[in-house]
Design a protein around this nucleic acid. Structure first.
Lengths: 205, 205, 205, 205
DNA sequence: CATGAATGAGCGTTCATTCAT
DNA sequence: TATGAATGAACGCTCATTCAT
């Protein structure tokens, strides 16, 4: 199960420092612009040491992406039994979900950038995430919490894109808290922007 | 007519081919992964010819970005006198605006990716765009078309993030048309996702 | 006899401007560091025009050197009938010769640097010049104007090295005039530096 | 003993070989005409290894020049207490000084050419050297060993130019020995060339 | 486990030179 | 005569990777 045999504690620490350093550098400057020498410098090791732990620069990238995907699984089973929710509890629950995602993104901000911008799998991962959200939305739709007439794939894209963009813009630099941002996002996503709902523009339910 | 001094038509064409090729390559593989040799190969020229028209690889990138910014100005004055709109016309107008943006993105898809992902100015440009949208939203809010209690900066981010993500996902690969996508996005953004509006969750107007 | 047939006056002018420009650039920055583009820029022409007049960059160098050698011939017959000189006239004559050389160097300063530093023939030219001087010295020696016991080749080298170095140092930048410098140099070369002539150190005449 | 950190003896040797090779190549072909590939070929290394030790081609040049300047300091304090010399010892001492300089030049012939021809500092270095000589001459003048009425700066230039030119011409190619050359040069410089000293041309002492 | 030394392959850029008009 | 466009052949330099200790 372990990736390498006979690993020492010290080695494990070096390996970990390399991963952290790589995540930070990749996130800051991008995969291609980051040199192996940058990574090892940040980790306090030599270049040769790098290849003790990773077969290539690409390998450390995909390992970071793998780590991100691992972290993602936490969200796989969230929002399961939405049916049980009373309609009046839905908005708060949704607000909470958004906050959870924001908190997750904040904790893994480097990984997020790596996985979503720098990885060759970026598109796939993006679709995995929006897929999770779409499934959750579908359950809520079946439970009657979501309006008729909406394209759920677009809904999912809208939710994630908004969360992600907002995180990059206000969360990662500390301009807004996860709680505050979650409220503001939820407010928009739940009831939309328009002040007036024309009579002839009702959902086709 | 023009025998002396100044660029020739042929040269202008070569230069243009290089810009096109660079946009395509940068969009496909990213700035760093794209070699000058890739660009000139795609443009049917030699490496040296590249430097006849651009002082460096970086220069063609920023020229591409400049071109994108130039194109952007078209949208600077759109949605000016929103006050004149009757509330019932707002949804259609907004749907049309979204479609216009989608059409613009589609026409400039390479430039979009370059400017928004590969450029060092990416963040600034992103903020310029959402700034335009936010201003437009503010005018609509003053005109009473937009609900109270919304954070307009988040609204703007939500609009652009959704449009942009959707374009990348369904528009650029032809899976959805601009018209269709605009409708679906507008539907979500205008009235939100929730089916029921709890009494205690009304806007604080 | 002419280098090219059917040459126009305009062409001849362009060619001349190129030679002047090349001399100046070669003198300032050296042959290798000077680009053809530098030369044509200084001459107000295009690179292609350069090759209308010279088959290569090297060609213009050797043509400049040839021109220098041509100029040199003026000195070939100077100091011929030294025998006729009265010993008391020798110092003044020598001072005048030095001044003449300095004046020549000043008038051809660019050419001098090109021929003596940048040309592959530099060594040969240097030897040609010192050869002329040595011959002149030999005539003066035969006429009894020059001390016994001197190595005439070293004398020649000493004369030219001093003149040349002094020109580079004080003449070309205007710090000393040719007349002034000639006097100072002559003073040293004629009677040497030492104040006292030990009895046991007399020439072996 | 030294397992961790710091340059190894092997590395130091490689670095040294590169310096030697560069000196030789620069001296032979000039800075611009010498390719990094020439240097590493002569040093038995690859291009990349070069940049392990020097940040650029220019850097190795200035390091070479710095080394030359370092070597030069040996001469800084030579000829100090000339006052103590009896006038009859001066010629021999001077002859010896010239021989020392010739020996130094011979030992550092590559460095000499690099520092005096190829370096951007060439002029400065030239002036440093002649400055040293001029100071020495001034001390000898104060001690009464040098004739009145001489321009000491010209004297210094004369001394160095003659030594340098002679070295290039006869010493470096083995045609004359340092001892022999020193005698011949000293003979000229000490008492000058002329056989007769006109009565009206006496020093203005 | 970790190091300093070394490398091969390639990249961005330059420049003397040629072509077509 | 002169031009703008184009090129081939390098060159300086970088970087991921390997070797020897």
């Amino acid at each position: 199960m372990s990736k390498k045999r006979g690993r020492t504690e010290k080695g494990e620490k070096s390996r970990h420092r390399l991963m952290e350093a790589a995540a930070e550098e990749f996130a800051r400057s991008g995969y291609h612009a980051t040199k192996v020498s940058d990574i090892v410098k940040a980790a306090g090791l030599t270049q040769a040491a790098f290849y003790l732990y990773f077969p290539s620069k690409e390998a450390i990238l995909s390992e970071l992406v793998a780590e991100f995907k691992q972290q993602l699984r936490v969200f796989g089973d969230s929002g399961s039994n939405v049916t049980a929710l009373a309609p009046s509890d839905v908005p708060a629950k949704m607000r909470q979900n958004i906050e959870d995602v924001l908190t997750f993104l904040l904790k893994n901000r480097e990984l997020v950038r790596v996985a979503l911008y720098e990885s060759p799998e970026a598109t796939v991962i993006h679709e995995e995430i929006t897929g999770l959200i779409r499934e959750n939305a579908r359950k809520n739709w079946l439970a009657g919490h979501i309006r008729e007439g909406l394209a759920l794939d677009v809904v999912a894209e809208c939710i994630f894109a908004t969360i992600h963009a907002s995180a990059e813009r206000w969360l990662f630099n500390g301009e807004k808290s996860a709680k505050q941002l979650a409220s503001e996002i939820a407010e928009v996503l739940q009831y939309g922007m328009l002040a007036h709902r024309p009579k002839n523009d009702l959902p086709k339910a």
